[in-house]
């Protein structure tokens, strides 16, 4: 149960962070989305043996997390989720790619090791960059921005509603699991023979809820027309952030800053 609870807490934690009021929080959602995408594209476009050139991107993570006041362990926990499959690919590279690249303090470093480190770094960077966007931008502003970018209304509404209902249905599921555990004589999870009834019951409850939700929405004048909301103009600070974000992403992509820095000595 703790795992179900923690998933729910994770969702609420992010939402709490996004309600903050730091300088980063106040930026226009559009520039935050664009800079995030630019960073992701630049990071992913490096080849599999890149290590040093990726490091400067950590600056963005450190600065943004610092200004937005988000603890590092939030990032760390999420990296752990993304890690297993990446580790599998990375470690298998170690076995298949044994070409020696260079020696460091008497230890031979193979191409596979370099690519493992590169994959891990990319994973950490990509996960952090996305986390930063979500932790400093409320979902409502993101979906508003999506509407303005002409994403179909049905899709945006679906995203908003699904997000809202995850919390509700997780609570439902937790209640069912609690009830099951209290009556199942010490068993933690349903048996395979019971799972159909268990999940099926949750499904039926959800569908009844959907019916009630629809009626309630109809009573409040809901309709699925394309909504046009007023566009918030970009401020000077937004332009500055956009300029610096985009420029840094591109400069770090084409200039290997650590090698340049090291070359000074």
């Amino acid at each position: 149960m703790a795992d179900v609870r923690s998933k729910l807490d994770n969702l609420y934690t992010l939402e709490q962070f996004s309600a903050g009021s730091s300088a980063v929080h106040r930026l226009h959602p559009l520039v935050k989305i664009l800079v995030t995408v630019a960073y992701l594209i630049c990071i992913v476009s490096f080849d599999r043996y890149t290590v040093t050139a990726l490091l400067p991107y950590l600056l963005y993570v450190v600065i943004m997390l610092g200004i937005a006041d988000i603890p590092y362990n939030v990032v760390f926990k999420r990296v752990l989720i993304a890690l297993p499959f990446c580790l599998f690919i990375g470690i298998s590279n170690m076995f298949f790619d044994r070409q020696v690249v260079f020696e460091l303090f008497g230890m031979t470093v193979t191409a596979g090791m370099v690519s493992l480190i590169s994959i891990l770094l990319k994973t950490i960077l990509c996960v952090s960059v996305v986390l930063i966007l979500i932790a400093v931008t409320p979902i409502a502003s993101i979906s508003k921005q999506l509407r303005q970018l002409r994403v179909p209304e049905i899709f945006v509404s679906l995203l908003e509603m699904t997000y809202r209902y995850i919390g509700v249905l997780l609570e439902d599921a937790i209640a069912m699991i609690t009830a099951y555990r209290l009556r199942s004589n010490g068993r933690k999870w349903p048996k395979l023979s019971e799972i159909g009834f268990f999940i099926g019951q949750l499904l039926l409850r959800s569908m009844d809820r959907a019916e009630r939700v629809y009626n309630a929405m109809k009573c409040r004048c809901y309709s699925l027309q394309d909504r046009v909301s007023k566009q918030i103009p970009l401020k000077l600070s937004d332009w500055v952030f956009f300029g610096i974000g985009l420029a840094s992403a591109i400069v770090f992509r084409f200039v290997n800053v650590p090698v340049l820095l090291g070359g000074l000595f």
């Binding site: 679906l158 995850i166 439902d172 999870w189 048996k191 395979l192 699925l224």
Partner: peptide, 27 residues
């Protein structure tokens, strides 16, 4: 029917999320 279907889609989508939390023992 998209308008009527939307709440159903959203709730069932959230249901899949919740259902994925429920593990079962593989015999």
């Amino acid at each position: 029917v998209s308008e009527k279907k939307l709440p159903l889609m959203a709730v069932v989508g959230a249901f899949v999320f919740a259902a994925q939390m429920i593990n079962f023992t593989i015999p």
